[in-house]
Every structure is written in C-alpha cells, then in structure tokens.
C-alpha cells in the first residue's frame, strides 16, 4: 500500500495509539478558551510530544512536562506522527 504511513500522519491526538510520538501541527477548537489554555500551558505548534496513556484521560509528555487532558481537549490537538508503536 503506497498510502501506508501517510494517510494517518495528520491526526487529532485522540485517534492515536499509546506511546505514539509526534509533532503538534495545529491547535484548533471551537472554544477559544481551550486554545488559550493549551497555549498558556505551553503547548505549541512544532512541539514534540509523546502520548503515554489514553484512559481514563489522555496523558501526554512534552520534554520534562507531563499533562493530563480529556478527550475534548485532545481532539483539538493535531499531530504529525513521527513513530508509531
């Protein structure tokens, strides 16, 4: 399949599997407040993140920071996957 490793590469965080590493490509949400919060907490486009856990909430790690977010917020972070386990 020539599409393999391509089609899933820009994906909302909540669709990714555990231990996925990737780079944030966009932060978008209807609710401006959520975007502001993510920005204030240090999430940025271009940031390298690792998805550590998906249940009961999403746990992501970026550098030395670890943050838990719910599915709603996770869906507003779009990620370009760099390795998939």
């Amino acid at each position: 399949m020539f599409t393999e490793g391509f089609s899933v590469h820009y994906s909302p965080l909540n669709f990714l599997g555990n231990k996925t590493q990737g780079v944030i490509t966009a932060i978008k949400n209807q609710d401006e407040k959520i975007v502001k919060k993510l920005l204030a907490m240090g999430f940025h486009v271009g940031m390298q993140i690792t998805l550590e856990q998906k249940f009961p909430v999403f746990v992501i790690r970026a550098g030395r920071t670890r943050i838990a977010i719910d599915k709603d917020i996770a869906s507003s972070i779009k990620v370009r996957v760099s390795n998939r386990n």
Partner: peptide, 9 residues
C-alpha cells in the same frame, strides 16, 4: 467542564 491538569513528578 473540560479537564486538563499538569502532573508534577
């Protein structure tokens, strides 16, 4: 409400 929290070591 949405949930987000920083997890300190």
């Amino acid at each position: 409400g949405c949930f987000y929290i920083e997890i300190p070591p």
